[in-house]
Design a protein around this nucleic acid. Structure first.
Lengths: 153, 153
DNA sequence: CTTTCAAGTTCCTTCGGGGAACTTACAGTA
DNA sequence: TACTGTAAGTTCCCCGAAGGAACTTGAAAG
């Protein structure tokens, strides 16, 4: 959690960052996606401080991204799983993966390959226009004032 | 810039975060995209501390995301524009915008609308499989070990 | 020759990250 | 019964990074 609050800005990018913009959060969500759902598993996998992990998990749960559920009563043991809201956030992770593979992988190639289950090909995520289906890049769009444009403090 | 280095992790998400994971960076890139390219403009638009802005701009320039160019010699005045590498990173911002519009906009609706110039519709970014063109979500993909999977410290 | 502006830099305070140790609650085993 | 192990945190201290305000530099403009 950063010092300046992004949640109040009239910008969906800022508001997304407010929820999951802190550097560890996307990696926690990635872990939850691939089945690393227990506190100690995450801590070992990420090398994150236990304190910070506990803070992030609380925040992501409060934000409706993760759900904390006991998978054992005695002894009390918990797992963190993605909600629908959290699951949809993985579209952002797919976009990060595509960019990171393209620009930061270097000669070694990407560390992880994504195989599309339905078509069988190794693939990556590509942004498309939800209306016409064509490939969409940032300068294909014009920005217009939307209905929620009010509270620009 | 966070304390733990993400750049060395064998994960494209982590490596993307290493470049642009600090909370302000995506907003700086957004500003550069929409034509807010001068130091003072950015500082006013974002409400960011001048110190932090100067640090981020240096880092993003060093990472090949932004280019610093003098648009005036006398007096010396500079602008920051996106490189191709930085421009492609905007795909991630489009995904953040789509998620933020859907999950954080509330009753007021999205603060900004995106109109696709080629088809004319108000739209949002949608992740598609680069191979078959179908809509792609996180559990449509299987993760496989890639060629660059080595250096998991 | 004082003001204004852009583009930073410097200084100070405070908050948050990192890391290690500690705690709680239970299970297994000898 | 005591000892060991494990999961899920919490507490403590230190230090680095964020925020904010003031200062600097270089040049034009009144």
């Amino acid at each position: 959690m950063q010092r300046t609050r992004f949640g109040d800005m009239a910008c969906s990018i800022a508001r997304t960052l407010d929820v999951a913009g802190e550097p560890w959060s996307p990696l926690i969500i990635r872990d939850a996606l691939v089945g690393i759902t227990h506190f100690d598993e995450m801590q070992r996998d990420l090398g994150i401080s236990r304190k910070v992990l506990a803070e992030r998990l609380k925040w992501l749960e409060a934000s409706g991204i993760l759900e904390r559920r006991a998978y054992s009563q005695r002894p009390p043991r918990y797992e963190y799983t993605l909600t629908q809201k959290g699951y949809e956030l993985c579209d952002v992770l797919l976009a990060m993966t595509a960019w990171g593979d393209r620009w930061t992988a270097g000669d070694a190639g990407p560390p992880v390959l994504l195989r599309h289950r339905t078509c069988g090909e190794v693939t990556h995520s590509e942004a498309h226009c939800a209306a016409c289906g064509e490939v969409l890049h940032a300068d294909d769009v014009a920005f217009e004032v939307g209905p929620g444009a009010a509270a620009q403090a």
